[in-house]
Design a protein around this nucleic acid. Sequence first.
DNA 1: TTTGCAAAGTTGTTTAATCAACTATTTATA
DNA 2: TATAAATAGTTGATTAAACAACTTTGCAAA
Lengths: 148, 148
Amino acid sequence: MELETGLEIKDFISLINGRVSATINRHLNRKFKGAGLGITTEQWSVLTCLWEKDKQTQQYICNHTFKDRASITRLIDILEKNGMVIRVSDPGDRRINLVHLTEKGAELEEEANTIIKDSIELATKDVDKKEFMILTSVFKTIIRNIED
Amino acid sequence: MELETGLEIKDFISLINGRVSATINRHLNRKFKGAGLGITTEQWSVLTCLWEKDKQTQQYICNHTFKDRASITRLIDILEKNGMVIRVSDPGDRRINLVHLTEKGAELEEEANTIIKDSIELATKDVDKKEFMILTSVFKTIIRNIED
DNA sequence: TTTGCAAAGTTGTTTAATCAACTATTTATA
DNA sequence: TATAAATAGTTGATTAAACAACTTTGCAAA
């Protein structure tokens, strides 16, 4: 099946079914597990927000991870259960939870970043920087075209 | 954080967290739902195998959708429950199920493909064909680098 | 022939995303 | 001030992926 834009539909299917991101995710989750970090890549994406700036609201974490409120509630449930973060109710606005890193959660940063960095370098071996920038810009266009 | 390849780590994060494929998936699932098709994009990816050639084994469907056996078992459970396909045991090798399209399942093809086609054209508006080909080739390289 | 191994599927458990409905709190407005 | 609307977060239901353990069936080598 061919599209009016001249693109082949099957070239789009790995994007639809998320084969590339699923492969990267699987790879990284195995590395995390192998290193005994005790977190998944989804939980890692929450922690990156806090490593950058601790004590954020759940809403802030939603915006920065592109996940919805329900997903963040449940990811933080697990992170809290596993002792990586704690919820602290904001005394100034009691609707708000400020998510605090624990020492255990803070300590993961370095090792997690090393794994991420190594994996990205492995994944993008032989990928030209210019080509990667094109991919990034195509992504932005697609998101702009269809988001919400 | 910068990588040795000169790539920025944050440009890779939307790939890790699958933001683009998740956005496409969400968009398509809403279109399918809006049109009352009664299938998800994951179920659609199974059906595409059968529309191309009916009466395939579950293993064949695994290979062509890049999903694992357990996922295919459950997707076919749902498709069978909803009357889109039926499992028929192969008399020549009783380990094998041949998955048959029902009339209902076969009839979905045209409408589903129209939705897919329209959505892809919307998503790739203003995306240059040459740029899309680069994206496809970068994907192939990444998968080759890290798969299994 | 039997013994063992490979192949095709299934099932249980955990993690996650989506969507809709819900509570609690705060802010705006009439 | 009373009421409505917006914001922050939670919960339930459904669909899905990953992984390991499992059953059944077929095949090959000893």
